[in-house]
Amino acid sequence: MDRIETKASGGCQCGAVRWHVTAVNDSSHICHCRMCQKAAGNFFAALIGVPRDALTWTRGAPATFASSDKASRGFCRDCGTPLTYDYHESRHINLTTGSFDEPARFAPKMQFGIEGQLPAFANLPIQAEGTTESTMSSVVGVIRASNHQHPDRDTARWPE
């Protein structure tokens, strides 16, 4: 994954959380997995990796939800804007592409988690890299075993 030196900024919808980056990874992508769908409240999450040393929070900081024991999702506690996907053992953190001030600069190049892809998006002109199982095989079992998200069904109480 190539590091691209750049200058970019972004933040949440209400402006309570802002950030600046000095580099991004050549990894702009969308993820169709069910965890990303739920975290984004959408059909997929659009993300780009940023080296940890290239990210500075310039106003506020995201609240986080531990979506598993290995990863957390960052969001603005005031307006709810999804901001990050952070796999803790990675050298980078993923920022939501839509939270960049100029998201068109970072168009997605790849798709992941295609096992969760809705049929309406089956013919996107972006290279499909594979399922969550195939692209994250070394950690997917641990993430699934420690999943803290509510299941896709009603429950009498939560956590179960």
Rank of each mutant, 00 (worst) to 15 (best):
D2G: 10
A8V: 02
F75I: 02
G41N: 00
V24L: 13
F65V: 00
E5R: 01
I114W: 07
H29M: 04
C12N: 13
P82V: 01
F100D: 07
N25P: 01
H92T: 10
C12Y: 11
L95Y: 10
V50Y: 00
F75L: 03
S68K: 09
H88F: 10
G80E: 06
S72Y: 00
C12D: 12
R59H: 13
I48R: 07
A16K: 04
T97N: 13
Q117S: 03
S28F: 05
K109V: 08
R91M: 08
Q13T: 05
E5Y: 00
P82I: 01
F43Y: 01
D86W: 04
P103T: 04
C31Q: 02
A8F: 01
F75Q: 02
I114D: 11
G11R: 00
E89A: 14
A45T: 05
R105N: 13
T58C: 05
G41Q: 02
S99L: 01
S67N: 15
R77V: 04
R52W: 07
T58I: 06
D78G: 01
L55S: 11
D53K: 03
R18K: 14
M110F: 15
C76G: 04
V17G: 05
D53W: 02
F43D: 02
W57F: 15
S90Q: 15
N25V: 12
R73V: 06
